[in-house]
Each structure stands twice: as C-alpha cells, then as structure tokens.
C-alpha cells in the first residue's frame, strides 16, 4: 500500500525551475530519506507536499488521498516538522501542543491525553510546563516531533529536522522516528543533507537541481561505497 505518492511534479518560480518532473512512491511504514544539497528543491517539495504552495504540475497522494482534490482530508493524515522552529517561544510546551491539538479538532481531556502520551514518548513530559524559550535545540525539536504526532498521522514529513543539533540528539531523534515506522506503520519522508542519518535499509531519493538523480533502497544504491561518496560521484560536488 502506498503511504506517499508523488507523480510528475514540476514547479518554477518565474524562469527558475525548482522541481522538474519529480515522481516517487513510499510504501506505508517505510522510512525514506530525501538527500540533497542546499538549493536542490527540498524546501519547495515540502511546501508543495504540505499544501502551502500549489505546483504548476503534478499530483500528490497522501495515504490514498489526493491532496489537490481533498486537501483538508490529506492534511489531517499528515504530520509536519518544518525546517525552522515553529513553536511559540513565549508559550509553554503544553500550551503549544494544546493550540495544535485544537487546530486538529481535539480539546479538553481528549487533547490532554494525547499530549501526555506524545510528550512521554519523546521523554518531554516533565518539561510540559516550561516555556519553549527556555528549552535547548534538541528539546525544541522533540517538542515539534511530539506535536506533529499528536493527531496520529499516517505520513510524517520532516524537513531537515536535525539541523543544528549535537550528534547524540541527532541519533536519538533519528532512531525514534525509525522506530515509529516499524512500530506504528508510519510513513516518513525525511529531508536531510547529513548522510549518517540514512540507514542501509531505508528508501533513498537523491535530489539535485530539482531533479531526482536516483531512488531505491540505500544499500542497493551505495553498494560497498559510503553514501557521501556515492553522492559526490553522482552530483560532482560534496553534500
């Protein structure tokens, strides 16, 4: 079954083509890494996948729901972690999550139960009352991931979620999201330019200058070579 399907996606800003005929499919419960340098078109792809930008061409299916036909139903199936922090710094962790839960139709006790469970999963429950401003980068990211999972989405989209974090926090967050794929069947699209976040068994898409250069299982694409080197050979520049 398909978790996320993208077909013939193209978009340009004026004369500048940001995405050229991008197409891929991720099965349910799979972790797919989207690897590309800055300017590859990752952010444009995420803006389109999340309905913030309408593409010139192409279709997107989120867990069998067409984004352009029923955008609200598709958005309800989607959890999103944006590249930059999107939390209200002056509100507490719980206040931030309550706000988000309400935007997805959960209030009162039902929301609190979900919030407690999501924070607990990410080891953030004891910080629920703290102002976001007081949290470090890793804890902010965990809060955002907890928030993105509050409404139990079928597809999780993360745009460079580990940028600026120390390696220990990066490993912990990457592992947690991988676990969600196997445990609850979450479909994940994880944009990154850090090759060590990709596991050999992950799906992998190499994006460069708005085009898909390669896609498949990471181990099959890389063979015996490290991913960074494969990228270097394909693109002609280091990631």
């Amino acid at each position: 079954m398909s978790g996320l399907r993208v077909q013939n996606l193209s978009h340009s800003y004026g004369a500048k083509q940001a995405l050229k005929d991008v197409g891929f499919e991720i099965e349910r419960g799979r972790f797919c890494a989207l690897l590309g340098p800055n300017g590859a078109g990752k952010s444009t792809l995420y803006a389109i996948l999340t309905g913030l930008l309408l593409p010139n061409n192409g279709t997107i299916e989120i867990a069998d729901t067409l984004l352009h036909e029923t955008p609200l139903r598709a958005l309800a199936k989607m959890g999103i972690v944006f590249q930059q922090t999107t939390l209200d710094l002056d509100l507490s962790v719980r206040q931030n999550l309550r706000y988000f839960a309400a935007l997805h139709g959960f209030a009162g006790k039902a929301a609190d139960i979900r919030i407690d469970a999501a924070l607990d999963r990410l080891g953030m429950l004891e910080r629920a009352g703290e102002k976001v401003r007081a949290l470090n980068g890793g804890h902010k990211r965990r809060t955002e991931i907890a928030r993105a999972l509050l409404h139990e989405p079928e597809v999780l989209l993360l745009d460079e979620p580990t940028v600026g974090l120390d390696s220990q926090t990066r490993i912990a967050i990457t592992e947690h999201v991988h676990r969600l794929c196997t445990e609850v069947g979450l479909t994940v699209l994880w944009a990154t330019h850090l090759t060590d976040e990709v596991r050999p068994t992950d799906e992998l898409i190499l994006l460069h200058k708005g085009e898909i250069l390669e896609r498949g299982i990471a181990a099959q694409i890389c063979g015996a070579l490290p991913l960074a080197e494969v990228f270097m050979r394909k693109v002609g520049q280091p990631i």
Partner: peptide
C-alpha cells in the same frame, strides 16, 4: 518569518476560516 503561520495554514481547516 518565525514559521508559526505555516502551522496555522497546514491545519485541516479551510484557510478562510483560519
């Protein structure tokens, strides 16, 4: 600029209502 507008606009509710 801070990104919280994205959270609002990706909520599964009509944009006009939000």
């Amino acid at each position: 600029e801070m990104g919280s507008m994205k959270v609002l606009l990706t909520a599964p509710l009509p944009r006009g209502w939000l």
